[in-house]
Amino acid sequence: MKMNDMAAAGPAVAAGGRQIGEVVLDLQNISLRFGGVKALTDISFDVREHEIRSIIGPNGAGKSSMLNVINGVYHPQEGRILFRGEERRRMEPHMAATQGIARTFQNIALFKGMSVLDNIMTGRNLKMKCNLLQMALYWGAVQKEEIAHREKVEEIIDFLEIQSVRRTPVGQLPYGLQKRVELGRALAAEPTMLLLDEPMAGMNVEEKQDMCRFILDVNDQFGTTIVLIEHDMGVVMDISDRVVVLDYGKKIGDGAPDEVRNNEDVIRAYLGTSH
């Protein structure tokens, strides 16, 4: 297919001047089944360092399943996943986290009983090294560690402009802010790859603009590779470097936004055909 040739081409420079690097994540012939239901069939695509890679498709196309495969929540029956050149076998979600993959969820998955601050602090748990006994005494090393991480967390709170709600239990926050806190929790882990599952669903135009700005800033300032699922085509076409299109668990398009927009299979999947 023409699109695949395009995807295999050498490094390119994105619009903002970011250097798109080597392939960091290579998915080869992934198939995922739940009993008789085929969620994903023979899907291959790759993600390059520092790029914004979108996955689009109609409802039920398998986009979220794809993210769940990438960070180890689901285990595909067939196919290979290469992350930074290494093949991954049977991995658990926390292993994906140690490799620097963070994500947000389609339906907000925050820790409702905890404050904004604690939620984002939890995102840093992999970097905390003190043991249980030290924590029980809360002396010296633990206190230093808590404060060092608190400083990092406050940077994220500043970045996301949520200073005023840092002590509020997240359950009490409006939807748009909760989405922002969830992004903050993912960022707290200082990931090299960030998986965003519909970060703008259910938002109004201003909130979408804010969220787009945060995503572009994360990509630009921290060089984080971003894999994005989004339904707002305007947003996807504007901010993505490359787009993958899924339909009924199959890949029907892959390439730069303009190419995908003009791909006949994609148009058919979204608009239907005349018979």
């Binding site: 929540v73 926390h94 969820f105 998955a109 939890t122």
Partner: peptide, 14 residues
Amino acid sequence: MAIRDMDVAAAVIG
């Protein structure tokens, strides 16, 4: 508390 509130999300952040 993370495990209590949302165990899948807790696993995903490590």
